[in-house]
Design a protein around this nucleic acid. Structure first.
Length: 465
DNA sequence: CTATGGCACGGATT
DNA sequence: AATCCGTGCCATAG
C-alpha cells in the first residue's frame, strides 16, 4: 500500500475525506495506535512483511526498489528524495543508513541548563521575575536542585517569599520537569502533579512520596504498606510506577525527557514523524526525507479475506463485505495521508534547504497559506499536516514541524548573536538598526518581544561581560 | 528625552 | 469562531 499516489485523489466520499483529515493530523505515535486499533477491529486488514534494501538496510516501501540506492545518478542535487519509511522500531535509530553517518551531531545543542529553562518560561515573566529566575537558575547544582534557599533570595530582592515561590513554580513546570526544586521530594511531587493532569496516577503515589520517600528509597515497601494500610503488592506497583515515570534528579536527564510517552505537548519532541538527512551526510548532496510509518511492513486488504467473501453466502457475506469496504477505505486514507505528507515535505525541504544545511539563521519565513497555494490544497490541510508533528533535522535535533513556518526564528537567532557580541548593552532601537542592516526589518516593539522570548534582559539590566 | 512595557488592532493560523 | 503574533500608540521609569 505504501506505493504511491495518483489514482487515489478522485473518488472522495465524505467519509473518505473526514478520515483522511483525521489521519493527516495524527503524529506517528498516534497513528500507530490508530492502525493497531483498526487492525484489531477489522479482520480484513493485514500487514505484509517488510523488506529491506540489501545495500543500505532501509525499508523498501511497497516492495519497490530502494529509493536511495537505485536513484538515477544524474538527479539534480536540489531534488530531494522523499519516501515513506515503515519502521518496526518506533524509536529512531541513531543510524539506520548503513553506517554512513557519524554519531556526532553536526551542531550539538550548546545551551546549558539555565538558558534552556529560562527560554521556556521567559515570556511568562515580568522584568523582576526574570531577574529572580536568572538568580535561581544560576544557583542550580548538577542534579537541577537549588543551592540557595528561597528565604534568602526573597530578602536579597526585598520581596515576599511568595513572589520567589511563584517563579520557582514556573521553573519547576518547565523541562526538565522538576528542575529548580529544593530536592528530590519536591521534584517528584511536581512531576507527579503534571502527570496527574494528563492521565491517571496511582492512588497513594502522592502520599508515598510526600511522607515515606526515605522508606521508598530504601525499598522498605512492607513498612510503607503498613503505614498506609494497603497491601505490599500495591505499594510495589506504585513504586515501579514512580521508578518508570518520574525522575528524582531532573538535572541529570536534561537531554532526555522525563515525561511519560503519552501524547502530551512536550513528548512531540521525542519521536520524529519525519527524518531529514543529507545523502552521505553531505550538505551539498541530496536531501533524503523519510516519512516515518510507525510499524514495519505494509498495511493492505487481505487477499485471503477477499477470497473468503466470494465463497461465503447471505448475511455473513454482507458483514464481511462491510468490513472489507472499511478496510479498503482505511488503506486509501492512509495512502492519501502519506501522499500529502510527501508532497508537503518535498516542497518544504527545497524551500528551507539553507536552514537544513546552515542553521537557524537561514530559516526562510513562509506561511502555511502560501505553501497550500503552491501545492493546490486547502490551507487547513497544511495546518493539520504540520500540527503535532516533529521532524528530525540533519543535525539530529528534533523540532516541531511548525518550526519550518516560524516567522521569527532567524530574526531571533541573529538577535541573540548581536547581543552575544555586543561591546556594551545595546538598546532595542540600536538592535533594530543592526537587524535592518542584516536584512531583517522589524519594529522596535518587536525587538523587545523577541528579546523577551529569548530570555534576555533589557539593556540597562544586562551586564557587560 | 530615551528606553521599555502594556494594551489593542489586524492578519494569519488553528 | 477563537487564538496567536507583529505592530502602533501611549504611559511610565530613569
Amino acid at each position: 500500500m505504501f506505493q504511491f499516489q495518483y489514482q487515489v485523489q478522485k473518488p472522495m466520499t465524505t467519509a473518505h475525506l473526514a478520515q483522511t483529515m483525521t489521519l493527516l493530523s495524527l503524529s506517528a505515535f498516534e497513528l500507530k495506535q490508530q492502525i493497531e486499533a483498526e487492525l484489531a477491529a477489522n479482520p480484513a486488514l493485514e500487514i505484509v512483511e517488510e523488506r529491506r534494501c540489501p545495500h543500505c538496510h532501509r525499508f523498501l516501501p511497497g516492495g519497490g526498489s530502494c529509493p536511495i540506492c537505485s536513484r538515477p545518478s544524474n538527479l539534480d542535487v536540489l531534488e530531494p528524495v522523499v519516501y515513506v519509511s515503515p519502521m518496526d522500531d518506533f524509536y529512531p535509530k541513531s543510524d539506520y543508513s548503513g553506517g554512513e553517518i557519524p554519531d556526532e551531531p553536526i551542531s550539538p545543542a550548546t545551551e546549558d541548563l539555565p538558558t534552556y529553562v529560562l527560554r521556556q518560561i521567559a515570556t511568562e515573566l515580568d522584568t523582576q521575575q526574570q531577574l529572580i529566575a536568572a538568580h535561581l537558575l544560576t544557583n542550580l547544582d548538577d542534579d537541577g536542585f537549588l543551592t540557595v534557599n528561597l528565604m534568602e533570595v526573597a530578602r536579597y530582592f526585598h520581596i515576599p517569599v511568595s513572589r520567589v515561590e511563584a517563579v520557582q513554580l514556573l521553573i519547576q513546570h518547565a523541562e526538565p520537569v522538576g528542575v529548580g526544586s529544593t530536592g528530590p521530594k519536591q521534584a517528584l511531587l511536581v512531576q507527579l502533579e503534571i502527570l496527574s493532569e494528563t492521565g491517571t496516577v496511582p492512588e497513594y503515589a502522592f502520599e508515598i512520596i510526600a511522607d515515606y520517600l526515605d522508606l521508598l528509597s530504601r525499598r522498605q515497601h512492607p513498612d510503607i504498606a503498613k503505614h498506609l494500610g494497603i497491601s505490599v503488592q500495591r505499594v510495589e506497583r506504585i513504586a515501579s510506577y514512580i521508578g518508570e515515570n518520574l525522575n528524582p534528579f531532573p538535572g541529570r536527564s536534561h537531554w532526555g525527557n522525563v515525561r511519560n510517552p503519552s501524547s502530551d505537548a512536550t513528548s512531540v519532541y521525542r519521536q520524529p514523524d519525519v527524518i531529514i538527512q543529507f545523502l552521505n551526510n553531505d550538505p551539498k548532496s541530496q536531501v533524503v526525507v523519510e516519512i516515518v510509518m510507525p510499524m514495519g511492513g505494509t498495511l493492505q486488504v487481505s487477499q485471503l479475506y477477499k477470497q473468503a467473501i466470494k465463497e461465503s453466502e447471505g448475511d455473513s457475506k454482507e458483514a464481511m463485505r462491510e468490513d472489507m469496504d472499511k478496510a479498503s477505505l482505511f488503506v486509501k486514507c492512509l495512502q492519501q495521508r502519506n501522499h500529502t505528507m510527501q508532497r508537503l515535505m518535498q516542497r518544504l525541504v527545497v524551500i528551507q534547504r539553507p536552514y537544513l544545511a546552515n542553521g537557524e539563521k537561514f530559516l526562510i519565513p513562509i506561511t502555511r497559506a502560501s505553501l497550500a497555494e503552491e501545492l493546490g490544497v486547502h490551507e487547513s490541510t497544511i495546518s493539520r499536516a504540520v500540527s503535532s508533528k516533529s521532524v528530525q533535522l540533519p543535525n539530529r535535533r528534533i523540532v516541531p514541524m511548525a518550526a519550518f513556518f516560524d516567522r521569527s526564528l532567524s530574526a531571533r537567532t541573529i538577535l541573540r548573536e548581536i547581543i552575544a557580541n555586543e561591546k556594551k548593552p545595546l538598546s532595542d532601537t540600536e538592535i533594530q538598526k543592526r537587524l535592518t542592516e542584516r536584512g531583517i526589518q522589524v519594529a522596535r516593539r518587536t525587538v523587545a518581544k523577541y528579546r523577551a522570548m529569548e530570555g534576555i534582559l533589557p539593556a540597562h539590566l544586562r551586564q557587560t561581560i
